[in-house]
C-alpha cells in the first residue's frame, strides 16, 4: 500500500476538524475540532516517518501529542474560568473586545 491513502485520510480528518472549529458555537466544541486537526497532523507525521524510514517523524509525533495534552488542560481551565465569570460557553457571546 502506498503513502497516498494515508495523506488523503489525514487531509480529510483535518478539514472535518476545521469545519468543526469554524461552525461550533460551544467553546468546548471548538476545542474538540482543534483536537481532530492535531490528530490528523499526527497521522501525516507517522505515515511520512514510516515511508521515509526516519524515526524523526515519530519523535515529532510524541512532541505534538504531549503539547496537545498541555494545550487541552490549559484551554479547559480557561473555559471553566470563562464559565465562572461570564456564565456562558457560547463563543458568540464572548465579544467583550468587540469595538
Amino acid at each position: 500500500m502506498g503513502l497516498e491513502p494515508y495523506l488523503i485520510l489525514a487531509a480529510s480528518v483535518f478539514t472535518i476538524g476545521l469545519f468543526g472549529v469554524l461552525t461550533r458555537r460551544n467553546a468546548i466544541g471548538i476545542l474538540l475540532g482543534i483536537e481532530l486537526m492535531l490528530n490528523a497532523v499526527n497521522v501525516n507525521l507517522v505515515a511520512f516517518a514510516r515511508y521515509a524510514a526516519d524515526p524523526a517523524g515519530l519523535v515529532f509525533t510524541l512532541f505534538t501529542i504531549s503539547i496537545t495534552v498541555a494545550e487541552v488542560a490549559v484551554g479547559l481551565a480557561i473555559v471553566i474560568l470563562m464559565f465562572r465569570v461570564r456564565r456562558t460557553v457560547e463563543a458568540d457571546h464572548l465579544d467583550l473586545l468587540k469595538g
Binding site: G17, G29, L32
Partner: peptide, 8 residues
C-alpha cells in the same frame, strides 16, 4: 471519518 463527522 464517520466518528470525526459525528464529533463536529
Amino acid at each position: 471519518l464517520a466518528s470525526s463527522l459525528a464529533v463536529v
